[in-house]
């Protein structure tokens, strides 16, 4: 199956090479999607556990604190790396 992935926030330039869609086995979990995304990122770079997780525009928590999430074909997954700035 294919899901659409959007990454925002801090250091999202690291995901420049990431395609808009990623392919996953069906069914798939959020953890499997994140594992796939991390494989596609530059070596040594991974998404931080405090990234916010949105699925279809709904907030589900952060990567390190969320209820179980099953993904379906066509889902839109948004990950927002926390920003502070000042």
């Amino acid at each position: 199956m294919k899901i659409r992935v959007s990454i925002m926030g801090r250091s999202y330039h690291m995901t420049d090479g990431l395609h808009e869609f990623i392919e996953l086995d069906d069914p798939a979990t959020l953890e499997e999607a994140v594992q796939r995304i991390n494989q596609l990122m530059p070596e040594g770079q991974t998404l931080t556990g405090s990234c916010l997780v949105l699925l279809g525009g709904t907030h589900f928590g952060s990567l390190d604190n969320h209820d179980p999430i099953s993904l379906s074909d066509g889902d839109e997954l948004t990950l927002i790396a926390p920003v502070a700035g000042g």
Binding site: G9, S11, Y12, S50, S62, I80, P82, V83, A84, G85
Partner: peptide
Amino acid sequence: AQWGMMGTLMVLRAGSTACLQCVYPTQPPF
């Protein structure tokens, strides 16, 4: 908050909405 050309804004009132600790239960790295 902001980073580069990206900004975020949250309008919260603990007790009736999420608070910032709900959103970031683990302190993100500095």
